[in-house]
Design a protein around this nucleic acid. Structure first.
Length: 413
RNA sequence: GGAGAGGUGGCUGAGCGGUCGAAAGCGGCACCCUGCUAAGGUGUUACUCUGGUUAACAGGGUCGAGGGUUCGAAUCCCUCCCUCUCCGCCA
């Protein structure tokens, strides 16, 4: 959420920002409504001042009569005021966060900026297989059964691939603990407030599963960022030291509008497991914390020895709530491409304004900044490992950094 | 699912028709003092909206949310949400 006062003072910037993100909101309409509201508020406040004067004492019957009329008038006016304020809120809620000064401006994925490329691509003296074929041969994934039981984009992971999942989780868990993140197990179903507060509503409502909607009004999280950030809603935090959490959760996504995209294997599914990091900090520290989160992600992929590139996501591709976002894209030999495996965002005060998360700044209370980043997204990490560590014989080697968590060093028939 | 109790500032908690944006304590902030530490003293400290120069200041609103009664509501009534306790059920 943007501050309406900011919008008022920086109209052109906001309009420009909307354009850069492909968002259409009538900012003029918004500001016109805001002006009208200001006038109405002043009018009502004047009447109330009058009434309050008399309410401090025990008024005479004549004055009571007069005050009653004022009361009725105020009531009518406030109904109208409320209506307009709701319209303002609805418009304001559609405004995306402002681009950071270092966010590339662009309309789509193709304008994302590769900041650096790390690691050596594996050289194969054979045709590398896509992960779904490797998995098929080694009995690691059952996609047919997934779609039979749950539908398209669901699957079963099996055998050593599951063991590899636990190894990855343990590895990342240890690393994040060491980095000062507190482990959390959050709820995976949340109310509207959490979805709206973290910026997934209204923009991405179509992406979210609404469960048992006639009875419970709960939503399945698409990332544990939602319950983790919402955790401190309506609180005043002590942020002398940033507050850092991480959580493993299953993530649920409808993937509406991605029909036909990434249909093979487990690259894109309705359900996957992910460790997510979340940081609450003072505004002046958010850039630094963003870099730190990115550094952790890089460290993980460096240690896995999988080639990756760091991408600074452009305005048209950044999503609704982020001011700045980096993705890590890992090399997938079968696709001959780098593909997204992590994502970390600085959402500045966009979420904290909606969720009313403040910190004690001297005598004052100010909105904090929130950040989030992928610790490890299991599905895609497994894909990257399978493809980069495959052998001519069709087996998969285990990355060294994971070997101590496992009883085997290679997945083979 | 049945029966109760309750939701007040950053926290604990008093208030139960006007003198209440709200006692007290804790915490926060500033300053002082003590050789260090532990402690102590003084002051200050809710949020939000509108106007105003992101000021001073003026005014409005806010005691879970929404509605109602009243000249006037934290306080009375209704609806909803949430929390807690007991019973039942399940793990």
């Amino acid at each position: 959420m943007l501050d309406i006062k900011f919008v008022k003072k920086n109209k052109d910037l906001v309009i420009q920002n909307n354009q850069s993100r492909g968002v259409k909101v009538d900012v003029d309409e918004l500001l016109n409504l805001f002006k009208e509201v200001s006038e109405r508020i002043q009018n009502i406040a004047g009447r109330r001042t009058e009434r309050n004067k008399h309410s401090k004492t025990k008024p005479s019957p004549e004055i009571r009569e007069k005050m009653k009329l004022i009361g009725d008038y105020i009531q009518e006016e406030e109904k109208e005021l409320k209506k307009i304020q709701n319209e303002i809120y609805a418009l304001l809620a559609q405004l995306p966060n402002l681009n950071s000064t270092t966010t590339p401006i662009g309309s789509s994925e193709k304008d994302n900026q590769v900041e650096k490329t790390v690691g050596q691509k594996p050289q194969f003296d054979f045709q590398p297989l896509p992960h779904e074929e490797l998995a098929q041969k080694l009995d690691l994934i059952d996609i047919d059964k997934g779609s039979e039981i749950s539908g398209a984009r669901f699957w079963y992971l099996k055998n050593q691939l599951v063991e590899l999942q636990w190894a990855l989780l343990n590895y990342v868990f240890g690393k994040l603990l060491k980095a000062g993140f507190q482990p959390v197990v959050p709820p995976n179903l949340v109310k509207t407030k959490a979805m709206f507060g973290t910026g997934f509503f209204p923009a991405e409502k179509n992406e979210i599963y609404h469960v048992n909607s006639d009875k419970d009004d709960l939503y399945l999280i698409g990332t544990s960022e939602v319950p983790l950030v919402s955790y401190h809603a309506d609180e005043v935090l002590n942020l002398k030291i940033p507050i850092k959490y991480f959580a493993l959760s299953t993530c649920y996504r409808r993937e509406a509008g991605s029909y036909g995209k990434d249909n093979k294997g487990i690259f894109r599914g309705h359900q996957f497991d992910k460790i997510e990091m979340v940081v609450f900090c003072q505004p002046q520290e958010s850039e630094k914390n963003h870099q730190e989160i990115l550094a952790i992600e890089e460290e993980i992929w460096s240690e896995l020895k999988i080639p990756y590139q760091v991408v600074n996501i452009c305005s048209g591709d950044i999503g609704f709530q982020a001011a700045k976002k980096y993705d890590l894209e890992a090399w997938l030999p079968s696709q001959n491409k780098y593909r997204e495996v992590t994502s970390c965002s600085n959402t500045t005060d966009f979420q904290s304004r909606r969720l009313n998360i403040k910190y004690q700044a001297g005598q004052k209370k100010e909105l904090c900044h929130t950040l989030n980043g992928t610790g490890i997204a299991i599905g895609r990490a497994l894909i990257a490992i399978m493809e980069n560590y495959q052998t001519k014989e069709g087996s998969i080697k285990v990355p060294k950094v994971l070997q101590s968590y496992l009883s085997f060093k290679e997945i083979k028939k």
